[in-house]
């Protein structure tokens, strides 16, 4: 067990070294003006973390992301449980969710702006729009793939509907919910950032667009690195949780 963990860590370190080496090589080949070197990027990121204005943007994105993630996850699970438990509701509404997943969400952004206006509400809504349908579809699928024996056991034990949902249905689909959480984690982040890029005056997405506009590549790369580290760490933790649930 311990040996496996050390080996996995060694693999991650090795892969990171290879990626940094490729980045360094590309930077040397293209020029640091277009692709800043790893050390230059890390230096800019450290400096930015000391800058109150950047911290304000980081805080704005974090807050919007936290709200959007909770709404997408909570709403997705509730909607998934509802659609998965009812054949009629599932057959009626799930195809629409699949359509929502398939279409490029950017095309819906004008409608989101009309509904929520410019500001935090719009980017939160855009984040939810990215994450919620996938969570709902995965949760509903998890419920439908459950063995019917759980329903029979619940009836044989004379469980009330509420107890059945809380004590059997939810724990039984938890592996699917955690898998959905992982996907929701990245999709919602994407939605919030895209929302900030198009119609916001603060946040990392806005800063990214502003930096691209003034050709400030070190800042662009520093933001990308920060997002990469955040998404990587979050995804790894959720993957570990999913493995633990599968036993």
């Amino acid at each position: 067990m311990m040996h496996d963990r050390i080996r996995r860590m060694a693999d991650i370190v090795l892969l990171s070294c290879i990626l940094i080496a490729i980045w360094e090589a590309l930077s040397s080949a293209i020029g640091t003006r277009f692709l800043p070197a790893p050390i230059q990027t890390v230096g800019r990121l450290v400096a930015m973390l000391d800058n109150p204005r950047f911290l304000g943007d980081l805080s704005a994105t974090s807050e919007a992301y936290a709200v959007a993630f909770c709404l997408a996850m909570g709403g997705g699970v509730v909607l998934g449980l509802t659609l998965g438990s009812s054949r009629v509701l599932g057959a009626t509404f799930e195809p629409w969710l699949h359509v929502l997943v398939a279409i490029p969400k950017v095309t819906l952004y004008p409608i989101i702006l009309l509904l929520f206006g410019l500001g935090d509400a719009a980017k939160i809504a855009f984040g939810v729009l990215h994450g919620l349908p996938t969570v709902a579809i995965m949760t509903a699928g998890g419920i439908r793939s459950l063995s019917p024996i759980y329903g029979k056991v619940a009836r044989a034990m004379r469980l009330k509907r509420r107890s059945y949902v809380w004590r059997i249905l939810l724990p039984a689909v938890m592996p699917e919910i955690v898998a959905a959480l992982r996907i929701c984690f990245s999709l919602t982040l994407l939605g919030v950032l895209v929302g900030e890029m198009f119609a916001s005056s603060r946040g990392l997405g806005h800063l990214l667009m502003a930096s691209i506009g003034v050709d400030d590549m070190p800042t662009v790369m520093a933001i990308i690195l920060l997002l990469f580290l955040f998404a990587g760490a979050g995804s790894s933790m959720l993957l570990a949780a999913a493995h633990r649930l599968k036993g």
Binding site: S147, K152, V153, M157, L159, S163, R167, P171, A172, L245
Partner: peptide, 30 residues
Amino acid sequence: VPDGIGVVFQEDASFPWLSVYDNVAFGLEE
């Protein structure tokens, strides 16, 4: 299902997310 009837099914109906103790205690807690 009336009170006083207990059913054991052909399929494995244990709850994999609960320990053996909690599986057995499940109905009593309810």
